[in-house]
Design a protein around this nucleic acid. Sequence first.
DNA 1: CGACTCACG
DNA 2: ACGTACGTGAGTCGT
Length: 886
Amino acid sequence: MVEKRLLLIDGNSVAFKAFYALYTALGTFTNSEGLHTTAIYGFNTMLETMLKTVKPTHALVAFDAGKTTFRTKMYDDYKGGRPKTAPELSEQFPYVKELLEHRGIQTYELPNFEADDIIGTLAKQAGEQGFTTTIVTGDRDLTQLADDHTTVAISKKGVSDVEHYTPAYVQETMGVTPAQIIDIKGLQGDNSDNYPGVTGVGPKRAVDLISKYGSVEGVYDHIDEITAKKLKEHLIADHEQALLSKTLATIKRDAPVTKQVADLVYEGDNHDELVDFYRRMNFKKFLAQMGDGGEPLTDTAELKPITFTTLTADNCDQLPDFSAGCDFYLEMDGDNYHLADFVGFVIGTDQHWWVSRDVSLLAQAPLKGLLESADVAKQVFDAKRTYVGLNRLGVTLAGVDGDLLLCSYLLNTYDNSNDLGQVAHEHGDEQVALDEDVYGKGAKRAIPTDDQVLFSHLARKAQAIADLRPKLLTELKENDQDQLYRDIELPMSFVLARMEVAGITVDASELEAMGSKFTEQLAEIEQTIYNEAGEEFNIGSPKQLGHILFEKMGLPVIKKTKTGYSTAVGVLEKLASDAPIAENILRYRKIAKIQSTYVEGLLKVIHPKDQKVHTRYLQTLTQTGRLSSVDPNLQNIPVRTEEGRAIRKAFIPRHDGWQIFSSDYSQIELRVLAHMSHDANMQEAFREGEDIHAATARRIFKMGPDEEVTPNIRRQAKAVNFGIVYGISDFGLSQNIGISRKQAKAFIDTYFQEYPGVKDYMDRMVQQAHEMGYVETIAHRRRYLPDINSRNFNQRSFAERTAMNTPIQGSAADIIKIAMIQMEDAIKDLQATMLLQVHDELIFEAPAEEIETLSKLVPSVMDSAIKLEIPLKVESHYGPTWYDAK
DNA sequence: CGACTCACG
DNA sequence: ACGTACGTGAGTCGT
């Protein structure tokens, strides 16, 4: 018999969750008629995921019929005190239902009952009829329905991010069986549904009581066994309330549902209706997925035609001189612009576009002159990419006046796609297609051979750059971000471009030598581990490893992950004392990591022509304003352990006799905090040149002036300082330094007493985030925190910590960026070259005779990059390799 | 493609 | 009471 799979969805709950999840992630969005579409979009995203994973044969979406239900009759205040559903959400429900109709899924609601009860009733029927059922909801209470043939999928953060609750998983995460969920609710009540439970009983006590006595009734049968006096009193006093709450929490399995499971056959999409619906909703992404036979649907039909002139060697001389500026876009096929094939380019202004596939034209007159002229103002998208691309053609780009990507990122760090079309859409310009729609994606990706298609796309890109520029510039001014843009980010992109082009030399033979040594060591440890385990297995597989350690060898389980046993460092370290295998696995992991990521990884990206690696710095990615580094990532080369650090021996200067020189800011984030918080005590410590962690130790441990700060005490104080910068929680701190949560809380309280300005700063940042929706760095870099007003404790707490941390981390990023821009100028007469940035340090290569000069120059540029209320401190090191620059 | 683990500041 | 430090990228496994 064919397997029958039923998908049951709690419509209200999922729409609600989708609305807020996307609202916080992407902001609100609407179709062309002003209808909000966030929930509809999110709902459909969830549907796509569930249809794909569950592959239902039957499906139904249940909705709540109204406010009054049999529960409100039992208890007036049921779900009382809830804020009214936002109109932006409620207006979407009719469309969610319409969407479901087009998708071939039935909907159902039943007066006096909630969606839960419909689902409970149908799931029961389905179980009896041999269905496998998946329930989708945002409400954990429904986990009470989990059984052998029913899984409850709870959407977590995103809409498609779900957690699947089987009975075993319910037991594991909640500590009780699905059937006991209602007993838990009976004792603890439910805040969001507004019913009380028993006074003084929270989740913890509820789980304890129910796992001991089985049910609410069981608890009262054994009420005399309860020794805690207060608890017993409360239980007795709230007896009726507990029984009522349990009833309220119980989902009906026998509601008078008029549908039969067998009637819920999933019909599948009505293609034409759905396409029409997506059009009306402006769902580009879903439209693109609808293309027949998997062909991407280019919605060029919706784009207005655009005119252009094809450039050739013969008509280049007819180009205008662009003395009033122009827009330029260079297309390459792939992310890595150091290597990607050139596709073509567009240049022009005022709706006159010249296009070509022949990039060699760029290296000849008159285009080369135009591009290299500082007097011809050019508007581009991704200046750094453009600079590096042109550099490969022998053209040195100058005179860039605007970068649409940078503008977009600075206005909102989320609007940072490398696809010009995507960015344009985010700013309301729909007149350019997404690259994916024109070029395809994955294996199907191909540059169109049809000139009309390719050139129109390129011309539209240039048009979008031209059209969006004034709008984005105005917005930057309104945000007081024009200086950040003009004086920091735009110049920064060229500094970075030149660092990327310069690259850093890597000694492949050094890496290879290390590699063979590691290979030997790995083979040896591997054998030892197999002997200890009594069999061979894949050490790199956490799943197999978990099986060996915790099932075969019976070691104690310290921590679990979603999918099984955790085998993370912390866990293995705890096991190491009584199981030598743990120690060996740690050693194996460490070496395997160095081997695969750094030895093999780096060897793969050494450019055979120049023996260098050329990273790409992503300037518009992080939410704080830091850079990131990819292909390869040169910002996470090992340093903390000797074995790893040895990798740095392979990073060498490009000439014999040259040196690697490195300068780093000392405690820049804490100094930034001292500055921004104006805290007198912290500022004093920095002004006096004290060891800040030791100074903090003296304060939080109330030490006398003669008492010695031991390394251990200093270590704890250091952890507290870190915690403060990250937006502290007592739990986080307690985990980090292995103390009790209570103790951690005491440390934090004392810290804030000793550094009251810091406390004020933290409160101020959280408050600003609440009021304005964003926080700012010293240079007015902005980060929006939509979750700051979330009703979800986790999301809100995370946003609050971010509000505290981002101005600190981001201002430190501002400072080093300013320093880097000034640095280029400061060293322009030297042979020394700036090669790398690792968040708070800069790495150079230079002839030995310039080291003395650099030792003065570099720190002076770095510490004077910005004037703070306290001094900045810079430390420098150098040596024949990066390893020696310590 | 997500989860896990681990490298960095 | 909620589950917890902030910001990243890459390799590997297994669905």
